[in-house]
Each structure stands twice: as C-alpha cells, then as structure tokens.
Design a protein around this nucleic acid. Structure first.
Length: 945
RNA sequence: GCUCUCGUAGCUCAAUCGGUAGAGCGCUCGCCUGAUAAGCGAGAGGCUGGAGGAUCAUAUCCUUCCGGGGGCACCA
C-alpha cells in the first residue's frame, strides 16, 4: 500500500514570466520586430486589401523630447493602425515632422551673437536644418520606444526638397486659380518675432493697457459745418484709446452714423466736448468730471458730422471725421481714434474714406522718422512718452490703466501689434462656400468638431501666408525689374519647383533669378531682369499641403482622401483647417474622410500641466517605471474626448490591471503546455455547459470589443477586457476549472475540454491585446508552444495574425442565460461560506458542503440539472439541493445559513476524509487498497499515470 | 460679454423612451498556499457639483448658480 506526502498533479508550466521586466523585454521584442521586418511583413500581407490610411499630423521639431500629449496622440494613432492592419486593412503609417518656422529659427538665433544680422539667410537655414534634424532623431527614438510602428526609415519631413518642390507646386496651382494675391493690409504682427502672423497664431491673454481720453479740436476751416450754436466755440471730439502709441498714425475720428452726439459745455473745460449721448455719463465718470456742471449746447447725429476735420493733437496735419458701423456704445466715447496702419477695421474704413495709411513702425516695433519726435522709440516704450506729450499739449483729459484681454503671439507669448504691410494672402473668400460643403462631407468625431471648424471657416478672413523670415519655403514669386509686376505663372513656378526638387530651397538664396527662369520673361513688359520675393511661407502652409506632398506623392499611401486624421482638438484651428483649405483650393475636396480629435492631458486633479506647478508627467519616466505598454494601456483606458487625466495613482492602478492581464495569459499558457490542439481538441458537443458558457462569453467580448474599436472608444474595450479577465476568467472559470486541470489524468477528456476552452481564449485574448499592448501580446505569442502556434496559423508574430471574429459556433445563448443565473446562486453560496469562515469553522471552501433550498421549484429544477457539477462550481466538497426546507439530510448543525432572493444556503462541515491529492473531502478515501490517502477518483487517475 | 460641453463611489468608466444608482480597479478584513512578489471571498465607499422647478416618478427634462474644458466676441 502506497502512501506519499505528495502526489503528482498537472501544474501549469510556462517560461512566461509573471513580471514584465519591461525595461528589458520590450526592447528585446522591438528589436525582433525591427530585425525581422514585422511591420513591413504586416503591410505586405495586406497589399491587396482595401486601404485604411491614417495620415500623420507632423509634430513640430522644436524639441528632441516628446511630451505626454504627443505620446498620447502617437499611441492613439498606433492603436488605430495596428487594429486596422489586424482587421484586414492595408494600413501603412508614414510619420511626419514639421520642421520649418519661427520657433526653430528663434531657438537657433538664441545662441547667435548679433542675432539675425550676423548670419546670411543660408547660414541661418543650415543651422535651423541641423537643429530640426537632431530633434527629429530624439523624437523618433521616443516614438519607437512607445512601440509605434511606421515608416521610420522614410518619414516625411517638410524640409525635404521634394516636399518643398511639391509645396511650391501647390502654391502654383492656387495662384493659377487666382486664389493668391499680394495686398497691403493691417495684419497681426509680432515685433518680437519680427513677422506677420496668421489668425491661427494669435491667442488672447490678459494685458494691462493704458486708457486715455484725448481731445481732437475741430479745425477752424470746419467750424462752419458744426451746429449753429457751437460754431463760435472751440469744439473738440473726445476719443478713447488703449494704445497711445498708435496716435502718431492717426488719420481720422470715426463716429457711428446713427448715434446721437452731444456738445457739452463742461465746467473748467476750455473746449466744448463731443461724445456720444449714450456714453456721456460713462465718460464723465471716467474723466473725473461727474461732479462738474455740464450743459448740453447742441446735439447732432454722427452722419451730420461726417467729413468735418480736426487738428491732429500733436502732429501737423488734419484728422478727418468719418462714419463707421463698427463704432459701438460699449466703451469709450463713441468717437473712435482711427489709425489705418494699426488696426484691421481702421484699415478697412480708411480705405473707404481714402485716408491713406500710416504705419510708422518698423518690423521690430520701433518708430520710424514718420513718427516725428518719437522716432527711434519702441512702440511700447513710447506709450508713456505719448501720454506725456499729450499732457503738455493740453489735450489729455484722463489717463489710467486697465486690464483686458489682448492678442498675443502664440509662439513667444508677447503682445502683438497691428501693422499695415504688404503681404501675400490666400483668398479664402474665393473657395469658402466649397470648403464649407466639404466640411459637411467629412465625419467629425466627436460631432461637435464639425461646428467648430465650420464656424471658423465661415467667418475667417483671408489667410496671410507670408512671413518675413528665413527658415521656410520661399514664396516663389519674382518681380520684374522693369515694371515691378510680380511673376508667378505656371511656367515660372514649375521652374522653381524643378530646382527645389533637385537642390532644395536654399537655392532660392544661393541662385540668381535667371538660374530658375532661364528664358521666361515678364508677362507684362517682357523684361528679363527680376528680383526675388524675400518672404517665406507660413509653416501652416507647409503642413497644410501634406495631403499633396505625402498622400498623393507616396504610392504606398494610395492618394487622397485618406481615411483618418487624428490630432488634438486645437488642430481645428490649425492643421485640419490649413489642410482643408489647400486641398479644397487645389483638389476641390477635403483630404480626409474622418477627423478624430482628442483633448489635452491634465494632472489627476484636472489642472493643466506646468513646470512651475510641478505636475508634469514625462513619458520617458512612465516608460522607465512601468513600460510602454502601461502607458499605452493608459491611452486606451481614458475617454479622450474631454480632458485626459494622468498621474501617479492612475498609473499605479493601470500597472495593476496590466499585471492582471499578464497573469491571465500566464495561467492560459501554463495550463496549455501539454496541449496540442490538432490532437487534443475536444468537439463542441463534448464540452460541458460551463465550458460552452465561457466560449459564449468570449464571443460576446469579441463582438463588443470590435464595436468599440470601430468607434474608437478604447476605454470601453479597456473596461470590458479587464472585467472579462478578472471576473469571468480568473475569479470564476479558472478558479473552478483548476481542479479539473490539475487533478484529472492529463489526457482525460474533461481536462482536454477545459484546455480546448483555454486555447480559444488564449488565441482570442492575445489578438485582442495586440493593438493596445503589442509588447505583452507579442511576449505571450512567443511563449506559446509550437503546437499551439502552429494551430493558430504559425505566424511568427502576433501582429501578423488576423483580428478575432465572432464565431457563430461559440454562440450559446442558453448557456449564457443559464450561467448568469447560476453565478447569482454562487454569490449566495460564497456568502454562506464566508460566514462559516469568519466564525473560524472552515478555512478552505473544500472543507464545506453546501445545501441549497429554493423557494421557486422551477429554479430548483433548473439548478438540479447540473447537480453533479455544483460542488466543483462552488469549489466545495459537496453541494446538494434540498427538496424540503434546509434539509439536514443526516448532516450535523449548519455552520452558517444565508437567505436571499428566495434561496437559502446552509454550509456544513464536509463529511469524510480529505484526499491527499485533490484535497476534497469524500467518503471513499482509502477505499482503493493501493492508495490509503486518496479518494476513489484520484486513486484511479494515479493508477493510470 | 455671448455660446457649446462636461461634472455619477478614492480612480477609470456604466446606467435603453425619465421608473429603487452599477462594474472593475483601489481600499479594509479574512481565506488559501498546487497561477505564489500570485489566487479566492466578503465588506465598507455615492443625498449622481449646489439650489430651485415641472412630473406619480428623474443621474436622466427645465431654470439658476458653482467648477473644469472649448468656441465666438472682445478689435478704438
């Protein structure tokens, strides 16, 4: 008679480690992907499939390190492309980089003694290029470490000469359609960056301005046009402004044509003051004259005062009184200081009245000789000087400061000015209607994005595309030396494009115009001598043409429109719009079919991340601590439509979830080490109801998860997957089925049945994981036994498989319904066991036997159908259904009793002896003469081993 | 200033047409020691941002306020 302390059981065996060791393992996996060209292979196998192209919005190369928002964006893109690839689409990803523009130029100039003047444009451009390309290397390394797949060997870069050539051709097409023009306009100007800015580059921020009220005395020659009662007095219009420095450029005083203006005799005030009736009180209060005696000498409508002339308060010229509907009664005096050179509205109204344009500041914001005594002063430094001068002239009624929101440069954050200069514009007006139609043909996710961009495009003014800088693509226009007309014909632009294609855009500065133009002459006078345009294009124009320079140029991307643009929601103003505008102008359609946006990353309490607050989460630190997959899991776990929180607590929790997923896989792998599906798979008919239930659930999960992926709702996938692994598998099925796996004879059908279910589960799970946590999925894939992998298709990488599909064979609604009821019963049983445990009556649940009695006979019959399996489901040594009350049925007093929902469960101490092998308490331990401490079941198994 | 949107347990997310607020994780306590730096069980956590209102009934509809985010306007 044998008696051993341990008998062999079928324990899980796997080399798949419990700990991820991401810092090492993820890199190993990435290396294998790179070395064996898995990305390329994944595309190759989908070559003939329908395409799903996500076109990359280029991150800006001002830094070598990406921040968490960029990481989120790239991971989202990668989840989409990996999913689409697995799902059967041809889904290449060509990453891009935005490499021109001010911030890079400024960053480079910071280290240059003497600034811009110290370098030639080409020298400066070479430094910018080197700077951008070195940052590219850093960003690329960051992206690759995240496990993002793409054409890393051949990304697109806006500074690439072929890109530049294509950009010039797009410019040419727009010019050919008459959508480009050069015009004098009052544009937003950054004196710090020394360039014009587009609307997209302007942001509003609080700013403390001056607030002054200034008298404009009516010129003697105009007095006859005043109301009779004041013709013999000294009359002055009172203007209000927040920018004293613009007064040297004043050329007019604007009144609203329909406002009533009053002529006020104010105590101690030599002039009769003219202000809008509706603003009189506000003005008198502000000017500290509320207590003074005030007499209204006359009234007049704005339109009755039109074309009067005033003396400029300190320059020797006249300032004309004009009418404009832009004058409001919200602030000021109803008399608006008008300087066409320093405000878009002033500019427009000035054009109507032919006031001319004065803009006596240079590109750095310093007054020119035209500004008279202020020449040489910077505009902001001139404010107090102007105020002082006004005081000396006796025309200043009031001076104070106040805080309001004011336009700032979104790059350097400094206040902007308006400056009238000649600029190149894209005439949005020319294709606005079509652009709006195209917006409505696009799917915007979330749907609110449609209104956001629609309103912007509907209301925006023409796009100022010229910049007075060196680091960018030149505006490919020449000016005839004879007639000074611009040359931008199809021919001349193609000539430029050809040279750029061959030499890059440095040639613009290195070569003479004749080198480009050869025999091309001026279209107006036939002249052959040209000057070149010195302005470059707005960087938004660069990235705005990627649809042409990348999607249409790279055969592997199969042209516009692509399926998806996916960027932060700020790109409605930026890239989505610039891409749309150029695409509509040139190709008459949007470059994308769907636009998906995400919000911004904030800390755990919802605050913006900032260095000063110290709440910045760095992607590389997350990766160092947890690995790329945990970071990716974070991306998948949040609803990115709104603000996206991240922080220590969240990451710790995500790491827990990651571990749960990992351990689920480990259990699957370990218990399949001796399973060859080709040989051992059990037919569906031979599976137990419980086994079929799990397959049914698996099917439901696949269906739901697929829906979530298709809607880009990854957080639902995350919830569901976590739930499935934790609840359905680990806490339920695995726990129950361990007994069968471990104690049966390895080849017994009931064990093989479980392994059959585990096989399907593993195969499905590993592929569901692949888009989000590719390293984990690959690690699992590589740890599968050869027979398993062979059965699954033999792919060398999980990323070369097909995404799981709903399997009609697995559908078993009956089992689904049946087991969801039984899970409720199990919950009640657990409570009874827990009470017995709390009373120290039992430890392990196998020490107990439970007896159930149902109030509802139908329910009892239902459960009775698997009475023989109930004990294994509850992991007890026995389980019975009583037909009469709690039914003691020969057992002693219950250890505990729990009643809920028409079910009473009584837990008893299990009868019999504990089997040394399966640990169950049975009445037949030792019955087999061979094994004194084994139950009959185990004795049989052991004898067959 | 106008406007849109969001605000559900510590965290991430659920709650079909309004019908007694759910899950997972975390936490606490306990069990197991044949998934073991694992696994299992139970429990405690929410006046659904606040206040009004319509309704038999509201997290869900209306008003208003507070807070987060966005858009437009603020141009003198």
């Amino acid at each position: 008679m044998k008696e051993k302390s341990t008998y062999s059981v079928n324990l899980p065996q796997t080399a798949f480690p419990m700990k991820a060791n991401s810092a090492v393992r993820e890199l190993e996996i990435q290396k294998v992907w790179d070395d064996t060209g898995v990305y390329e292979a994944s595309l190759k196998r989908r070559e003939a499939a329908p395409k799903y192209v996500l076109h990359d919005g280029p991150p800006y190369l001002s830094s070598s390190k990406i921040h968490i928002g960029t990481a989120l964006n790239k991971v989202l893109k990668d989840i989409v492309t990996k999913y689409k690839g697995l799902k059967g689409f041809y889904s290449p990803y060509v990453p891009g980089y935005d490499s021109h523009g001010l911030p890079i130029e400024n960053a480079v100039l910071k280290d240059v003694k003497g600034g811009r003047a110290a370098l030639t444009p080409v020298e400066l451009r070479q430094r910018c290029r080197a700077f951008a390309l070195s940052n590219l290397k850093g960003q690329e390394a960051n992206f690759r470490r995240l496990g993002v797949w793409g054409h890393w060997q051949s990304p697109y870069i806006t500074l690439d000469q072929h890109f530049e050539a294509k950009q010039v051709r797009v410019f040419g097409k727009m010019a050919g359609k008459g959508y480009l023009y050069k015009g004098l306009k009052s544009v937003s100007w950054c004196p710090n960056c020394e360039t014009a800015l587009a609307e997209a580059e302007v942001e509003y921020a609080d700013h403390t301005s001056n607030s002054i009220y200034v008298k404009f005395a009516v010129d003697a020659a105009s007095k006859s046009k005043l109301p009779a009662s004041v013709q013999d007095k000294d009359v002055a219009f009172v203007i209000w402004t927040t920018t004293p420095w613009t007064l040297p450029a004043n050329l007019g005083v604007a009144l609203h044509p329909d406002f009533v203006y009053e002529f006020l005799q104010v105590e101690d005030e030599p002039h009769v003051l003219v202000v809008a009736e509706s603003l009189k009180n506000a003005f008198l209060n502000a000017a500290g004259k509320a207590e003074k005696a005030v007499k209204v000498l006359a009234t007049a409508l704005g339109k009755e005062l039109e074309l009067l002339e005033c003396r400029h308060p300190f320059m020797d010229r006249l300032s004309r009184v004009i009418n404009g509907d832009h004058v409001t009664a919200e602030a000021g005096t109803g008399c608006v200081h008008t300087a066409p050179g320093h405000g878009p509205e002033d500019f427009e109204i000035g054009k109507v009245y032919q006031l001319g344009v004065l803009s006596p500041v240079d590109s750095r914001g310093i007054f020119t000789e035209e500004a008279g005594i202020f020449a040489g002063q910077r505009f902001d430094k001139a404010n107090p000087l102007v105020v002082e001068h006004l005081k000396e002239k006796g025309v200043l009624l009031q001076h104070s400061t106040f805080s309001h929101s004011y336009p700032h440069c979104w790059r350097c954050k400094k206040p902007l000015i308006f400056r009238a200069t000649e600029q190149w514009f894209a005439s949005v007006e020319g294709f606005r209607k079509r652009a709006l139609e195209c917006i409505d043909a696009v799917e915007w996710l979330p749907a609110s994005g449609r209104n956001r961009i629609f309103n912007m495009v509907e209301n925006r003014s023409d796009w100022c595309i010229s910049r007075q800088r060196a680091w960018g693509v030149p505006i490919p226009v020449f000016y005839c030396k004879g007639c000074h007309k611009p040359l931008m014909s199809e021919e001349s632009i193609e000539a430029v494009a050809k040279v750029f294609d061959a030499e890059g855009s440095d040639s613009w500065w290195e070569r003479e115009p004749g080198y480009f133009l050869k025999d091309i002459g001026c279209g107006h006078c036939g002249g052959k001598e040209f000057d070149r345009e010195t302005d470059i294009m707005d960087v938004w124009f660069d990235s705005g043409v990627t649809h042409a320079a990348v999607l249409d140029e790279r055969p592997e991307l199969r042209g516009t429109p692509c399926e998806l643009y996916l960027e932060g929601s700020d790109q409605h103003r930026g890239w989505f719009q610039s891409s749309l505008l150029t695409s509509v102008a040139v190709s008459d359609r949007a470059p994308y079919k769907t636009v998906l946006t995400h919000g911004f990353v904030v800390d755990e309490s919802g605050r913006k991340m900032s260095k000063s607050v110290g709440n910045v989460v760095e992607p590389d630190e997350v990766i160092k601590q947890y690995g790329a997959d945990v970071l990716r899991l974070w991306v998948a776990s949040v609803n990115y439509t709104d603000d996206i929180p991240i922080g220590k607590n969240m990451l710790a929790q995500l790491a827990d979830v990651y571990r749960r997923l990992r351990n689920t896989a480990r259990f699957l792998l370990g218990n399949l080490h001796d399973f060859d599906p080709a040989r051992d798979m059990v037919k569906k008919e031979s599976l137990s109801s419980l086994d079929r239930f799990v397959l049914h659930r698996l099917n439901e999960v696949v269906a739901e998860v697929t829906r979530d992926f298709d809607r880009f709702e990854f957080f639902k996938y995350y919830q569901l997957l976590q739930n499935f692994c934790g609840v359905d598998l680990s806490a339920f099925y695995f726990d129950i089925v361990k007994d069968r796996l471990y104690t049966c004879h390895p080849k017994d059908e009931s064990r093989r049945a479980v392994q059959t279910v585990l096989t399907h589960t593993l195969h499905t799970l590993v592929r569901l994981l692949a888009p989000v946590t590719p390293h984990l999925a690959e690690d699992i894939w590589q740890h599968m036994s050869e027979p398993l992998r062979a059965y699954f298709g033999g792919q060398t990488s999980v990323l070369l498989t097909d995404y799981p599909q709903v399997n009609p064979d697995f559908e078993d609604k009956e089992a689904g319904a049946y087991w969801s009821e039984l899970i409720d019963v199990r919950l009640t049983v657990n409570k009874a066991l827990e009470q017995a445990r709390a009373a120290r009556s039992i430890g392990s649940s196998l020490e107990a036997t439970v007896v159930m009695s149902f109030g509802d006979k139908e329910k009892a019959d239902k459960v009775r159908k698997i009475e023989g399996d109930l004990a294994s489901v509850f992991i007890t040594s026995g389980a019975h259904i009583s037909s009469n009350g709690t039914g003691k049925e020969g057992l002693s007093e219950p250890l505990s009793t729990v009643s809920e929902e028409g079910l009473t469960v009584a837990a008893y101490r299990a009868q019999g002896e504990k089997c040394a092998r399966c640990w169950k308490y049975t009445g037949d331990v030792g019955k087999d003469s061979q094994y004194a401490d084994l139950c009959g079941f185990c004795a049989d198994v052991v004898s067959r081993l």
